[in-house]
């Protein structure tokens, strides 16, 4: 236990934690959306995120930019960034919907037991991971341009703030507020809430359940795509099995906040990012990945409904 480390670096640990947490939150939303409607942990969601990181990287490479050649000028950088964003969002959401259509929908038609969904989900996760793994020779890829500067811009309360951190935190907040608004104020969003609360009556009231389910996978995919680009900006590196650990943490974030609860996912993500950074200052960075797991077990033991409770629908399945 090294408390001096924690105190000395507290401001910096906080900003890094929040940045990381913002990315967790975006991925956690995907778990929470699907869980809220289907009562199902979409194990393949981690891979939905992972394919996004590759989609963005390859798009940037295709535009001629790589680790040795970054675009100059804010406008071009922004343009390239948005191109990557669009590609990641498109690929991630397409993957999410494809998983729903191939791995889940046929099982729902057959009224399969819950165990079957989980097994099929883990199968889907594996297939995606392996396809990318084979395509990339299971090698790590760091061939990414620096689109947003990593140099400190200014200092608040002893913490150096970089443009990357601003882009990620602000970008994530915009996405979260947008999603919250969409679920609460649009006709499609109402459908989602109706199915989450009571799928059978929603179906009887004329909500197209199949379409709502497709929609939540799509929305989860969009969030994961954005998260993928942010992860690229922050880490500048990706790998075929990157999604697994990341997904586990994002899921922990969702459970921490209260799975099925959109705002809970955001809160859980930010909290987990902070806890992870503070704790790894204490016990050493090599054990940072254990922190999320310990948090997960602790939450499940002491407050399985999370901080804000499971809210999109009923309290318990």
């Amino acid at each position: 236990m090294d408390f001096s480390e924690l105190f000395r670096n507290f401001p910096e640990l906080t900003t890094t934690g929040l940045t990381q947490g913002a990315i967790y939150a975006l991925v956690a939303l995907g778990y929470t959306l699907v869980y809220g409607v289907l009562r199902l942990i979409n194990f393949a969601h981690s891979e939905v995120f992972m394919v996004g990181t590759f989609a963005a990287m390859w798009t940037w490479n295709a535009l001629g930019f790589n680790q040795n050649l970054s675009p100059s000028g804010v406008l071009i950088s922004a343009g390239v960034l948005i191109a990557g964003l669009l590609a990641a969002v498109a690929v991630s959401s397409a993957t999410a919907v494809a998983v729903e259509l191939t791995a889940y929908r046929p099982l729902r038609k057959r009224n399969a037991p819950p165990l079957a969904f989980l097994i099929s989900a883990i199968g889907a996760s594996f297939v995606i991971m392996e396809i990318i793994g084979i395509a990339t020779d299971r090698a790590p890829y760091g061939n990414m341009p620096e689109l947003v500067s990593n140099k400190p811009l200014f200092t608040i309360l002893g913490a150096e703030i970089t443009p990357v951190q601003i882009v990620i935190v602000v970008g994530a907040l915009v996405m979260l507020v947008g999603l919250d608004w969409f679920i609460n104020n649009t006709r499609l969003g109402r459908g989602v809430r109706a199915v989450a609360q009571d799928p059978d009556s929603a179906a009887l009231m004329g909500v197209n359940k199949g379409r709502v389910i497709g929609l939540v996978f799509l929305l989860g995919g969009v969030m994961a795509g954005v998260a993928a680009v942010f992860a690229n900006l922050k880490y500048g590196f990706t790998k075929f099995n990157l999604g697994f650990l990341f997904g586990l943490k994002a899921f922990t974030a969702a459970v921490l906040g209260g799975i099925g609860n959109l705002r809970g996912a955001v809160l859980g993500g930010l909290l987990l990012g902070l806890v992870e950074n503070y704790a790894s200052a204490l016990v050493g960075t090599q054990f940072r990945d254990l922190v999320a797991f310990v948090v997960l077990i602790a939450v499940l033991m002491f407050r399985p409904t999370g901080i804000l409770g499971e809210s999109l629908g009923r309290a318990r399945a």
Binding site: L245, L290, F293, I297, L300
Partner: peptide, 24 residues
């Protein structure tokens, strides 16, 4: 701690467990 929970939580905790063994 985990067997009292719903089955899907158990699945993800065990998944995490194997990964943590690897991390160690």
């Amino acid at each position: 701690p985990t067997l009292r929970l719903r089955g899907d939580y158990l699945a993800i905790v065990t998944l995490g467990f194997a990964e943590m063994i690897r991390v160690i």
